[in-house]
């Protein structure tokens, strides 16, 4: 590689550090979907809650990693949360899934407990401290999975009306065929739960995976009508999606 002219290099680094301003997010009043969490003062929640939804293989983690890098580069403190990460029940949830021993309502409530624990002990305190919280999936995945298993919509809406309404929700929609390919690119096996094997759709795992994932896409489409989130076609490469996310999140941070 040819050495850069010293003068150009100096100029470049001067440009890089020329504008160290950090955009201050506009405070917007938060709300709960319904009953919410007892005792929380919504006006204290200064941070922003950004939710990225999508199946395994939709590129969620890649997009989130890049978003966090970008947000930190632009001076925002971030916190990440996700499903099955609570101190309270995450180990028990994993054990239960391993043995496939919980019935549906129980599993559903177990996940809700995991969610509530993180909502109360991580999301809300972080928002109070002015952080940008990036949630790697939120109540919508939990609801879609339960709906696919025959749960009652009114029951679910009541259960999850403890949740905060996020400042932005993006659903990375990927066709089942693309998901299969991306899964195999990472892992030679399909996951039991991601294939919806407990539903008895097919004894053939590949077939079950495709059918289950397309059921989930339908459920997300229905949930979108209720919860009004943004659906992004994520069959495309990482870059254009990331640029779109940044643009949108930027407007979310600065809108009054």
């Amino acid at each position: 590689m040819a050495a850069q002219e010293p003068s150009t290099r100096k100029k470049k680094s001067r440009e890089r550090f020329a504008h160290p301003e950090v955009a201050i997010p506009t405070a917007t009043r938060k709300s709960f979907y319904g009953h919410g969490i007892p005792g929380v003062k919504l006006e204290e929640l200064a941070g922003k809650l950004i939710v990225i939804e999508g199946a395994d293989g939709s590129g969620r983690s890649t997009q989130i990693n890049r978003l966090v890098k970008w947000l930190e580069a632009t001076g925002h403190a971030t916190v990440q949360v996700g499903l099955k990460r609570s101190t309270l029940v995450s180990e028990e949830l994993a054990a239960a899934q391993e043995g496939n021993i919980l019935s549906r309502t129980t599993l559903s409530l177990f996940y809700a407990t995991d969610f509530a624990d993180q909502l109360v002990n991580v999301i809300i305190p972080s928002l109070r401290a002015g952080f940008i919280v990036i949630a790697d999936r939120y109540i919508y995945t939990l609801m879609a999975r339960d709906l696919a298993r025959g749960a009652d919509m009114d029951w679910l809406r009541n259960l999850y009306d403890i949740a905060l309404v996020p400042d932005a929700v993006i659903y990375l929609k990927v066709s089942p065929q693309t998901l299969v390919q991306r899964n195999f690119a990472k892992n030679p096996e399909l996951d039991y739960w991601e294939s919806g094997m407990d539903l008895g759709l097919s004894r053939d795992m590949f077939d079950s995976f495709l059918r289950y994932q397309s059921i989930l896409i339908d459920q997300f489409r229905d949930l979108q009508k209720v919860y009004n989130f943004r659906i992004v076609n994520a069959d495309r490469p990482v870059e254009p999606i990331q640029n779109m996310l940044r643009k949108w999140i930027d407007t979310v941070l600065t809108r009054g």
């Binding site: 309270l88 624990d117 109360v120």
Partner: peptide, 9 residues
């Protein structure tokens, strides 16, 4: 660790 909501759930 339990709050009213997680206690309930």
């Amino acid at each position: 660790l339990l709050t009213p909501t997680t206690f309930s759930l």
